[in-house]
């Protein structure tokens, strides 16, 4: 699916980034989870923090949300250090949490109205808070369930309520931590459409995922976090271009299926035909995609070869 988004990378340079992270370190005992994370996010961008489990994505997001301390580094979220963020600062954030069974006895509209009320004192003429509950229920498709008890919602409906609760305060910055874990494909598709619709109004979004396709669908820009470091960043197209230098040529020859990786597929195919043009069937040339490179990096990281994983992208990009 192609999503046309305004190119926000040309935002005025003097605008302060919504999110700024420099040299972020996090250590639990002897274990170093984050080893110098650097990135910044401008207003209105949708950025995906992509990485395998254990890469430090959730830790990063929880530090940014102000839910977790950090060992070292400079962090600014909406111009404030999250470790010292006050309630006014918190009112500008939205956090989409994965519900499990909380507030099961509450009715959908009742809970949303209750949560909305906490944001009312922070309303300004330029940025009215909270959102209208009725409109929000319609946006997330829960109008028919508005008076149902939350415990009686289906899994998909509950996740839509999670989003509604996260955005009811009309946040300037929205956090989505592994938003579609455990979703079936249809629910995932629905969720992606919803996030894109909500992210439209000046809202900056930081999401974490281990799924490249999800990052591709939702994000303007992707940060690849492996082994506690951001080892690559750019739009999915940029990353794909950088990794697409190599191609895989497959064909059938001598009754066997053969394949070869090469940096210059044209020259290789010319040679192939020159050698024995009559015995080359079913020829296919395919660029090595970002997905394969990413998966190879994840495999390296999981096998404990973190340095190798970070080198992989640099290598294919050369």
């Amino acid at each position: 699916m192609t999503v046309v988004r305004p190119d926000r990378r040309n935002a005025p340079a003097d605008e302060e980034p919504v999110l700024e992270v420099h040299g972020l370190h996090m250590r639990y005992g002897d274990k170093e989870v984050l080893r110098g994370v650097d990135f910044s996010v401008r207003r209105g961008e949708v950025v995906a923090l992509l990485g395998p489990n254990g890469a430090g994505k959730s830790t990063t997001v929880e530090i940014l949300e102000g839910f977790r301390g950090r060992s070292a580094g400079e962090v600014r979220v909406l111009g404030t250090d999250p470790a010292r963020g006050d309630e006014r600062w918190r009112s500008r954030l939205g956090i989409v949490l994965q519900s499990w069974r909380d507030h099961g006895k509450w009715r959908v509209r009742e809970l949303l109205t209750h949560f909305a009320a906490f944001y009312a004192p922070y309303s300004t003429p330029g940025h009215p808070r909270p959102r209208d509950v009725g409109e929000l229920l319609a946006t997330v498709g829960l109008t028919d369930q508005a008076d149902q008890r939350i415990a009686s919602l289906s899994g998909g409906q509950r996740r839509r309520l999670d989003i509604a609760l996260g955005v009811v305060g009309r946040p300037e910055l929205l956090f989505l931590d592994e938003p579609t874990t455990g979703f079936d494909p249809e629910a995932r598709h629905e969720f992606h459409a919803l996030v894109r619709a909500l992210a439209d109004e000046r809202c900056t979004v930081l999401l974490t995922t281990h799924d490249l396709r999800e990052a591709e669908k939702l994000a303007d820009r992707v940060l690849i976090l492996i082994g506690g470091r951001v080892i690559a960043e750019g739009t999915v197209e940029e990353l794909a271009r950088r990794t697409g230098a190599e191609a895989e040529v497959t064909w059938t020859g001598g009754g066997e299926r053969r394949s070869r990786r090469t940096a210059d597929p044209t020259a290789f195919v010319q040679r192939l035909f020159a050698e024995d043009g009559t015995d080359v069937h079913d020829l296919r040339i395919r660029r090595v995609g970002l997905e394969e490179v990413y998966l190879a990096m994840v495999r390296d990281a999981e096998a404990g070869r973190v340095e190798e994983a970070s080198r992989r992208l640099a290598e294919v990009a050369r």
Partner: peptide, 19 residues
């Protein structure tokens, strides 16, 4: 309510813990 996530949800609200 700490285990089922009620507390965390309120914590994400401005002055949610007080409420």
């Amino acid at each position: 309510e700490r285990q089922d996530g009620t507390l965390l949800r309120l914590k994400a609200l401005p002055h949610g813990m007080l409420g």
